[in-house]
């Protein structure tokens, strides 16, 4: 196990932030941690990173023997929600400096920068970076020591659709090829559906759901999506697992069969390969969103994205 957290509770300055949070992750998992604002997601991450100690519950990172938080952090890469840097440094300088905490870079800084799409800006001071570039650099920072567990808080904030796709591809590669466990804290349910194999929903300091995404979606029926087509796809075949339900001008509604190992990202790619061209996806019923709203009730999370 990478994380084995059971019934965690935490009170800060008299306010009970976490009441009963559980989270279980193993190698190669991409875990989507969801919840409304103020539900306790960030505090849960802070607990996992040892920034707080739980008042109650059992928290194990890696193995039972791993109790030294400094040694534990040596194996975790973190991308906080707000990506800040010493902006007078260049991206390359910053990565080399930060890697010093981990005993040095595990790869050449330029190859790391290339991996996150910043290969041509390595010598540029960070002050000149756009928000999206800083997000990419933050991801590079979290990878300087080849971590076993990656904790990402809203990693695609500020990225354009192409950037999102590139980051998604990188995360999928890390999880599948390098068996890195990824804990993804996000408001974007599309990101979760596209990337995650496992999902946990926190509401009001409690874990209200923790399950494999595939099981979750299959358990509540086939997920349904409404896509906005950029041209009329007459006569084009549908990829396997995708079933057309109805259409109304440019809006076409599909149901999707999710088999093991299949992600929504792959489904969208298959559609594009089959010549279906679309620029917007709306999530309908029988989806993670429906389940999310059912469990949390209050807030509607981001539900649409521009297709890449």
């Amino acid at each position: 196990m990478l994380i084995d957290a059971n019934h965690l509770a935490l009170t800060l300055d008299g306010n009970t932030i976490l009441k009963d949070v559980s989270l279980h992750m193993k190698k190669g998992d991409v875990y989507g941690l969801l919840g409304p604002n103020g539900a306790g997601k960030s505090t849960t991450i802070a607990l996992l990173l040892g920034l707080y100690s739980p008042d109650k519950g059992h928290l194990q990172r890696f193995s039972e023997q791993d109790t030294d938080i400094v040694a534990i952090r040596q194996r975790i890469g973190v991308m906080p929600e707000f990506a800040g840097f010493y902006e007078w440094m260049s991206a390359r300088e910053y990565l080399i400096w930060y890697a010093g905490f981990y005993g040095g870079l595990q790869a050449q800084p330029d190859s790391l920068l290339e991996r996150v799409g910043l290969s041509r800006t390595g010598s540029q001071p960070v002050v000149q970076f756009s928000r999206g570039m800083k997000q990419r650099l933050a991801l590079a920072r979290s990878l300087v020591h080849a971590p076993e567990l990656l904790i990402l808080d809203e990693p695609t904030n500020g990225l354009d659709p192409r950037g999102r796709r590139e980051i998604h591809d990188l995360l999928i590669e890390l999880a599948t090829k390098e068996q890195v466990g990824i804990l993804l804290c996000t408001h974007l349910l599309d990101d979760v559906e596209r990337l995650c194999t496992r999902v946990g929903i926190i509401d009001d300091g409690r874990t209200v759901l923790e399950d494999d995404l595939e099981h979750l979606l299959r358990g509540s029926g086939r997920p349904r999506y409404r896509l906005h087509m950029t041209d009329v796809p007459e006569g084009r075949p549908l990829p396997p697992l995708v079933h057309l339900l109805e259409w109304d001008d440019a809006w076409w509604t599909f149901e999707v069969d999710l088999h093991k190992g299949m992600t929504m990202g792959k489904i969208w790619e298959d559609l594009l390969i089959h010549g279906w061209s679309f620029d917007e996806i709306h999530i309908e019923s029988n989806t993670l969103e429906a389940r999310y709203l059912e469990l949390t009730g209050t807030e509607k999370p981001a539900q649409q994205e521009k297709a890449a």
């Binding site: 990173l49 952090r73 040596q74 707000f82 800040g84 840097f85 010493y86 905490f101 981990y102």
Partner: peptide, 12 residues
């Protein structure tokens, strides 16, 4: 400036 968390989450 958002640079404290990377320091606090580094192995120090």
């Amino acid at each position: 400036r958002g640079t404290l968390v990377p320091l606090l989450t580094a192995p120090i």
